[in-house]
């Protein structure tokens, strides 16, 4: 059945291939190119306009920023990836009994789904790159920092290296040659979850995080 459908559809499309111009001459779509300082400013202002928080921090002291924000938000716990790129720094910076308590869980999510869904207050992850034009974080979740970490907990902290801040999405795709190999899941995240489905009024924190906090290392 399915195979018949496949062949029939493809056959019909092939038989009636249109006669219009199919050239793919690229018209040059003008792309902004900002120096790094402006890039950070643009990134910050556009993210803040959708109620994300963006903080600049020194590469050696960013855990202080993370800690103070986590305390201010009165979080009970913070999910982090011990084996991820931020793992060691975070672990070293936290005292044993310090609040919020650090949670590390390397098991498949299905084995601890309930606590991820209903008990984890916040998660912290790294990011692969970011985009100034649209205020977007680029995440390629990994086995250490799974994709649901940036989705299920109500608060998501992201640590971004300012060197990884590109001008545009097109630039990221081209520069990193994404077509050579895409990961299981690639994400652009550009703010906390939101909806305008009721009377076009913006409400934040629909299904994903209510708070998105970006710590930019400069």
């Amino acid at each position: 059945m399915t195979n018949n459908a496949r062949d029939a559809i493809l056959q019909r499309l092939q038989n009636s291939q249109p006669s219009f111009d199919n050239s793919d001459k690229s018209v040059s779509v003008e792309a902004p190119e900002w120096p790094i300082k402006e890039r950070i400013e643009q990134f910050k202002s556009i993210l803040e306009s959708v109620r994300a928080e963006v903080l600049l921090a020194h590469p050696d002291h960013w855990t202080d920023t993370l800690k103070s924000l986590a305390k201010k938000k009165q979080l009970n716990n913070l999910l982090f990836a011990k084996k991820g790129p931020l793992g060691k720094t975070i672990e070293d910076a936290w005292d044993v009994n310090e609040q919020p308590s650090l949670v590390n869980n390397e098991r498949p999510i299905s084995e601890w789904k309930e606590s991820l869904f209903f008990h984890i207050d916040a998660a912290v992850t790294s990011s692969r790159a970011a985009i100034a034009e649209t205020g977007s974080l680029v995440l390629w979740p990994t086995e250490h920092e799974p994709r649901s970490w940036s989705l299920v907990p109500p608060v998501h902290f992201v640590v971004l290296d300012a060197d990884k801040l590109y001008n545009t999405f097109a630039e990221v795709v081209e520069h990193e040659q994404w077509q050579q190999g895409m990961p299981t899941n690639a994400l652009l995240i550009s703010g906390p979850s939101k909806s305008a489905d009721i009377e076009q009024t913006l409400a934040y924190g629909v299904h994903g995080p209510t708070d998105l906090i970006v710590i930019v290392l400069t």
Partner: peptide, 9 residues
């Protein structure tokens, strides 16, 4: 400028 999530699977 962009939606909150752009999800590439």
């Amino acid at each position: 400028a962009i939606t909150t999530y752009f999800n590439m699977i």
